[in-house]
Structure formats: structure tokens, C-alpha cells
């Protein structure tokens, strides 16, 4: 199957639904005044535009159904669009267009309370239903989000990004994505070539060793690495903490930092890695920190700051905060649960 084509079509349909709903925001002046009052999508014309429709309303069952529903919906909830935080809608290049019709329930008992709940979570609540099934829009969005999640796992981080940040690239023992997914152990081990390269290129025994890895979302790195990394460097500089030569591990798992610790012996390893994508965000980044990671380091000694993306903690702010976390790790010479114990 051509996934690109599917995505394009899905997007088209979603846009169309979005457009119709925008059209419907303007309340129909009078439904019985005949032609020109109901707008239908002209899917036969190559130029996408609306055509006026009056009596032939029922001719296109899809549009008719939709417009009926939407009229009701917009009539119930007063312009729910205004309640969507603008920060989310302003993001243009996201691959997940925001749900524009946040309240999907056709005639909510208490529209205000429902709106209140809906704005509190990006989860799919209050999306309504069509009989026993989800509504078309909900279903398509679900498929789109799922598609985006799959893409994030199978995608690659662009070379130019890594070059611009001066990250050189090494690989793990996992040869290709399928293997990487089936064999987590291989993602934790660096290839022989990788070991040689980092020995050769990296500063030995630095205070802070920075690594990035695609992990389960190349999107996370693509969207967030630059901001979180540059902001992190600024905070390290301000705190007077030195750092070694950064690099990128392709198809890496969190514990790949243990081998890096063995080879380069830095005091702290900071690993930026893509999180397993979900249906809310496929580009969420995590930062794992560990004081002197070595082979056999237990998970309790690692710490993580997760949920770094446009809809979570802003990448620039996460980077700025990260400096103070590293400072604390260095001060107590511990990370994770050990750090909590030492802090008292």
C-alpha cells in the first residue's frame, strides 16, 4: 500500500471536514429560502471549491449528513473553536492537525461543562458517536495519528540536522528497523565500528557527555533536538560545567549509554532519545541522565525528564532546566533513586 497516498487522502478529507464546519459556523439565515443556502463540496471539479446547492441537498448523502450534523453541533456549543488554546493551533508544520471540532457530542446536556473537560486534556473525550461507531472525523483522526506514530518509529533523522549541530553518527548492533524493534538487546550495544569511532573522536573523561538517539521516534529528534540541545548548552555554560564531544546513535536504546560510559568514562551521560510514540504525540522527547553509567547499571540509577515537545514542556525550557539537574547530579555524585537518597 502506498502510505503517502493514504495520508494525503486522509488529510484532504479532514481538511474538507474542517472547511465545512467553518462554513457552518455562519448560521444558515433561513433553511427554507431555497438555493444557495447549503454549501456542498464539489468533488468533481479539479479546483476545490464549494458549489451552492438547494434542492439537490440530498443528492450527496455524505455532505448532507455532515452538514446536518454540523449545523446542530455548532448551534449547541457556541463557537467551541475559541476555546482551543491558540498555542496549539498556531503550530503550522505539525503532522497532526488539531481537532477543530473539539466537542463532538451532538446535543450535550451541559455544553459548558463538557467543553471545560475537553480543554483539560488532549485525550479523545467528548468526541461523540455515530450510532455505535465513532464519527467519521474521529475515526480518520485516529487513523492519521496512528499512521504518524508508525512513521515516527520507521523514519530517519535527517543528516543535515545532525551536521548543523555537529553530531557525528554511529550505529548499534541492530542492522535495520525490524531487527531493532524485535531485538531490544541489540539496540543497547554499539557496533565495533561505533566503538572505534567514538574512541577516536570524543573527549575522554569529560564532565558531561551528550548523546542523542532516535530511539522509537525519529520525529522527536527532528523536531526538538536543536532547541533542547542549544538551550542545554547555554545553561551548562552559565553554570560553568564543561561538556565533551556530542554524537548521535542510530537505532539506540536507553541503555546504550552504558557502553558509552565504559568507553569514555564521563561523569554524567545525558541522552536525548525519542519516546515511543502515542496517539496524542508522536514527537515527544525524553532526556535520560545517569551518573557514571557502566555495564550493569541498574535502571533505578537513571533519571528521566519526559514529555518534551510542543504540546508538553517546551524544548527550550527543558534544556534550560536540564543544566540545574546536571549540576545536582555532579554535586551529589549520584543520579536516580541514589540521588534522592543522598539529597535526604
Amino acid at each position: 500500500m502506498n502510505t503517502e497516498l493514504i495520508e494525503t487522502i486522509t488529510k484532504l478529507i479532514l481538511e474538507k471536514i474542517g472547511d465545512t464546519s467553518e462554513e457552518k459556523e455562519v448560521p444558515p439565515i433561513s433553511s427554507d429560502s431555497g438555493a444557495g443556502m447549503v454549501k456542498l463540496w464539489d468533488h468533481l471539479s479539479s479546483e476545490n471549491h464549494y458549489m451552492a446547492a438547494g434542492t439537490e441537498k440530498a443528492a450527496d448523502p455524505y455532505s448532507a449528513l455532515n452538514s446536518d450534523e454540523l449545523v446542530k453541533l455548532w448551534g449547541q456549543a457556541e463557537s467551541p473553536e475559541t476555546n482551543i488554546p491558540c498555542s496549539e493551533t498556531a503550530v503550522e508544520d505539525t503532522i497532526l492537525p488539531e481537532l477543530q471540532t473539539r466537542i463532538g457530542v451532538s446535543s450535550p446536556l451541559n455544553a459548558e461543562a463538557l467543553q471545560d473537560s475537553v480543554t483539560k486534556t488532549p485525550a479523545r473525550v467528548g468526541v461523540g458517536r455515530a450510532g455505535l461507531r465513532p464519527k467519521t472525523e474521529t475515526w480518520l483522526r485516529f487513523r492519521l495519528d496512528h499512521g504518524a506514530a508508525v512513521d515516527a518509529v520507521y523514519g530517519n533523522v535527517p543528516e543535515e540536522l545532525l551536521e548543523s549541530l555537529k553530531f557525528f553518527s554511529v550505529s548499534t548492533m541492530a542492522d535495520h528497523k525490524e531487527e531493532y524493534i524485535r531485538r531490544p538487546d541489540l539496540g543497547r550495544k554499539l557496533s565495533e565500528q561505533a566503538k572505534m569511532t567514538i574512541r577516536e573522536k570524543c573527549q575522554f573523561k569529560s564532565k558531561v557527555q551528550i548523546i542523542a538517539s532516535d530511539g522509537l521516534s525519529s520525529q522527536a529528534i527532528e523536531k526538538n533536538l536543536e532547541d533542547v540541545y542549544l538551550s542545554f548548552l547555554q545553561s551548562l555554560d552559565q553554570l560553568g560545567i564543561g561538556y565533551g564531544t556530542p554524537f548521535y546513535i542510530e537505532k539506540g536504546r536507553v541503555a546504550s549509554m552504558d557502553e558509552v560510559g565504559e568507553i569514555l568514562e564521563p561523569e554524567v551521560v545525558v541522552l536525548f532519545i525519542g519516546e515511543r510514540p502515542g496517539l496524542i504525540s508522536s514527537e515527544s522527547l525524553s532526556v535520560y541522565l545517569c551518573y557514571k553509567p557502566r555495564k550493569g547499571t541498574i535502571e533505578a540509577d537513571r533519571m528521566v525528564i519526559s514529555n518534551i515537545h510542543t504540546g508538553g514542556i517546551p524544548p527550550v525550557e527543558a534544556g534550560a532546566y536540564l543544566g540545574s539537574v546536571v549540576q545536582k547530579v555532579l554535586k551529589y555524585q549520584a543520579s536516580g533513586v541514589s540521588l534522592v537518597h543522598k539529597e535526604g
Partner: peptide
């Protein structure tokens, strides 16, 4: 209003 004080503060200091 937004969660950006640390990075902006550090930037101004820098």
C-alpha cells in the same frame, strides 16, 4: 504566561 522563564532568563544573562 507560558513556561519559558528559565530559558529566557538564562538568555538575558548570557
Amino acid at each position: 504566561q507560558d513556561d519559558l522563564a528559565k530559558v529566557l532568563g538564562q538568555t538575558l544573562l548570557a
